[in-house]
């Protein structure tokens, strides 16, 4: 499947017309978007119990051009974290979902200088076993300038130059079906900056406006090692 198909499958309706982009920005807190159920490559909903722990899965949300990481923290437990300092506001992180909060999701764009996974390469990754940059396991590391984030603690920066957390994606877990959906994120100002910075690249990959196509209903989540051809370790 090529990139465009990927987007087409993910991006269903027209809830977010391009013209409405500016009005999406709300002050502080989570911004709700149409829910998207996380699925495998052929659109079948992922069963949470089958989500691997060894690497992040990548899905687009809330629009096609924004890559997000879904992480299964395995035995780790998460708790809500109030008072996280974002780029401009404080916010409360609700913690992960699932039986012991082990499923978390973050926007896969480094808050330091915006490195993000492309089809060719990802310098940002979840290093389950630790790495030479992260002094501990279960961290998200960015090889560009060695920022380290803690996904157990709301994605807050714990090393390197990043000064604020990875943007959290809100998840919902249905214990009956054992399925996970995304339904909100924090930090649309940051996302807009990302879009502006990479506009040329995003147009080249998704076509004019394609990167702004809403993702709703379903979002394909695939392992980072399949999403990007190269994932350098650091």
């Amino acid at each position: 499947m090529d990139r465009r198909d990927f987007v087409k499958v993910c991006a269903g309706g027209t809830a977010l017309a391009l013209a409405n982009w500016d009005s999406l920005v709300l002050a502080g807190g989570f911004e709700a978007f149409p829910a998207a159920k996380l699925t495998n490559k052929i659109g079948i909903p992922l069963k949470a119990t089958e989500i691997p722990t060894g690497e992040a899965l990548v899905f687009s949300y809330p629009v096609a051009g924004v890559p997000c990481f879904l992480i299964n923290l395995g035995k780790k437990t998460t708790k809500p974290k109030p008072g996280l300092r974002g780029e401009s506001d404080e916010y409360n992180w609700a913690g992960g979902v699932g039986p012991h909060g082990q499923f978390v999701a973050y926007v896969g764009i480094c808050t330091h200088q915006l490195s993000y996974p492309t089809q060719e390469v990802s310098f940002l990754r979840y290093a389950v076993d630790g790495s030479s940059v992260a002094d501990a396991p279960n961290r998200i590391v960015c090889c560009a300038h060695s920022s380290v984030f803690d996904p157990v603690e709301g994605g807050r920066p714990v090393g390197g130059p990043a000064t604020f957390p990875l943007l959290p994606v809100r998840l919902a877990y249905d214990p009956v079906s054992d399925e996970i959906s995304a339904d909100g994120i924090i930090g649309m100002e940051f996302i807009k900056r990302f879009m502006k910075t990479y506009k040329r690249d995003l147009i080249a990959k998704y076509g004019p406006g394609g990167y702004l196509q809403p993702v709703e209903g379903k979002a394909i989540a695939m392992p980072l090692s399949q999403y990007s051809e190269v994932v350098p370790a650091c």
Partner: peptide, 13 residues
């Protein structure tokens, strides 16, 4: 080679 690639992203950042 991993650091070779990261070097380029370092500058781009």
């Amino acid at each position: 080679q991993a650091m070779g690639r990261a070097y380029l992203e370092w500058a781009q950042g």
